[in-house]
Simulated scan of single mutants.
Amino acid sequence: MGTDPPDRFVEIYEQAYRPILGYVLRRCQDPDDAADVVAETFTIAWRRIEEMPEGDEARLWLFGVARRVLANHRRGERRHEQRTAALREQLAASPLLAHLPQQDLSAIGRVLADLSDDDRELLTLVAWEHLDTAQVARTLGLSRNAVRVRLYRARKRFSRGLAKAGIDHPRAIEFQESAL
């Protein structure tokens, strides 16, 4: 062996990167997923550099690692899809959604989505997660006073958005009031 592990890794990486990338790209639908799989493959190679065979066997070993990483990635995607489907079913059965006409829900959703991330986070922490001002302050790492001011402003922006969208549905008002 004789080569320093970092030097050996660089040598193997330079020789095997393109073949491993091609292998993974041909098996992944999304180039971002392929990049993740290749990165994980070489992370494993770095951690296990002492176990890696010599010569061309190292490249073949990496193909085996990439194959297993791909399999894990696919299993993870399937689990994610199953959890997402289950969550959609739970949301569809939500009592809040059952009493709100779909048209109004999408309009309220659009108003909420149009808010800044910070406003949306504040309002939903209060309305959906039932956190009080002190709990929101701890969650966000802010003072209670800062939360009160930001929440007041977020509610005003949400109210203006609802009015602009012509929403005067009791469930929308309940959402707004529960965020108070």
Score class of each variant (00 low, 15 high):
82 Q>F: 08
83 R>Y: 07
71 A>E: 13
90 Q>K: 15
73 H>V: 11
92 A>V: 15
28 C>P: 05
72 N>M: 03
96 L>F: 07
65 V>S: 04
82 Q>T: 14
78 R>H: 07
86 A>Y: 03
32 D>T: 08
52 M>W: 03
93 A>G: 13
79 R>H: 07
55 G>T: 05
75 R>H: 14
24 V>F: 08
132 D>G: 13
76 G>E: 11
88 R>Q: 15
105 L>G: 06
37 V>Q: 07
32 D>G: 14
85 A>T: 14
79 R>C: 10
107 A>P: 01
70 L>D: 04
50 E>G: 11
80 H>S: 08
53 P>T: 06
48 R>C: 03
108 I>Q: 07
57 E>G: 04
41 T>W: 11
74 R>D: 11
29 Q>M: 11
25 L>D: 13
31 P>G: 12
21 L>H: 09
114 D>K: 04
75 R>A: 14
75 R>P: 04
20 I>C: 08
54 E>R: 05
132 D>Y: 02
104 D>M: 08
30 D>E: 14
23 Y>A: 08
132 D>R: 09
72 N>R: 09
78 R>T: 15
28 C>K: 06
63 F>V: 04
105 L>W: 10
125 L>T: 04
28 C>N: 05
31 P>D: 08
90 Q>P: 09
113 A>N: 13
124 T>R: 09
127 A>P: 05
122 L>G: 11
27 R>T: 08
58 A>L: 03
101 P>W: 09
63 F>M: 09
44 I>W: 04
82 Q>I: 11
70 L>S: 10
54 E>D: 02
64 G>A: 10
54 E>W: 00
26 R>Y: 00
23 Y>L: 15
61 W>E: 12
50 E>M: 09
93 A>D: 14
25 L>C: 13
99 H>T: 10
34 A>R: 01
65 V>W: 06
63 F>H: 02
60 L>S: 13
30 D>L: 05
65 V>G: 06
100 L>Q: 09
82 Q>H: 13
41 T>I: 10
22 G>T: 01
115 L>M: 06
112 L>V: 14
68 R>S: 12
121 E>T: 15
123 L>S: 04
79 R>G: 04
64 G>S: 11
48 R>G: 06
51 E>A: 15
123 L>R: 03
43 T>R: 15
80 H>L: 07
81 E>A: 12
20 I>D: 05
21 L>D: 10
25 L>A: 14
55 G>F: 00
